[in-house]
Write a protein that binds this DNA or RNA. Structure first.
Lengths: 139, 139
DNA sequence: ATGCAAATGCAAATCGTTTGCAACTAAGAA
DNA sequence: TTCTTAGTTGCAAACGATTTGCATTTGCAT
């Protein structure tokens, strides 16, 4: 019934992992939970400052690295630009980036994944992770 | 029979495109033609200095950009690191990066390409280019 | 040869990101 | 609750990759 605590969120899990839940981290987690895009560090910083203008950009960077290490978020380095982030909700997917708007569309193809495995296999490798991005424009 | 001029190379084509063939550019083109790896700008610079120690790093960067614009080379931005280059010999391929050695293995899958097109299609997009990298380790 | 726009080397600037350090704070102990 | 202290912060400076301004040089068409 506590509507302030809508989601268990990552806080509990992070605390579990020995991570201190500080004010900046709370704010960044909140931003990540509410975002529906793929913001970069600067975008997250700007949103954070609106909630607490004492937050620093380095803390954003440090927190993103921490969350990445803990597996709470995923980092994407698209075409040239800065790293962009999204919560790692378990489900793997790839990205289609709209060249005109920068918008990111998520998709998943089990068939392609399987082919990738086959290829790596045949080259004597085991895939640790992969990256597949389609850059295109609406028609 | 002229063994000094093994390949026509890009010089002629670039000249055609109104690009001046300067000493630094000659050297960089030579390095690219002879390379069998995927060097970054610094690596190219180091190789270039051995042939002419007056070459500057900025010229390497400027030349890479020029060659990229002219379609003579392709730029790859792998996982974090600096851009790495390879001649654009027409044939498209993707990359498998060895996480332990950084070595790059090229491969191509017509099947995957086709699936990518289908996916973009179904999302209402037209692919301009794509990027697919597998990161793995030998087993 | 001559002239001039294009290309160069150098140093300084830029961008995204990381880091050293002194001040601050979360959270377990007392 | 206050105490304690290792973990965390903000700030500014450092960083690595890349770009840029500018005065000087150089291809190459004449």
């Amino acid at each position: 019934m506590n509507d302030k605590n809508k989601q268990p969120g990552y806080e509990a899990l992070l605390r579990e992992a020995g991570v201190r839940i500080t004010r900046p981290r709370k704010i960044i987690l909140k931003i990540l939970a509410e975002r529906d895009d793929h913001p970069d560090a600067m975008a997250i910083f700007r949103r954070a400052v609106r909630l607490d203008d004492s937050i620093s950009l380095s803390t954003v960077y440090r927190t993103m690295k921490l969350l990445e290490d803990k597996g709470a978020i995923q980092r994407h380095a698209f075409q040239g630009g800065p790293s962009r982030f999204e919560p790692a909700d378990g489900d793997h997917h790839d990205h289609l980036i709209d060249l005109d708007t920068g918008k990111v569309i998520e998709f998943h193809s089990e068939k392609i994944e399987r082919l990738q495995d086959e290829i790596a296999q045949s080259l004597g490798y085991e895939i640790v992770h992969h990256r597949m991005e389609l850059y295109g424009r609406k028609k």
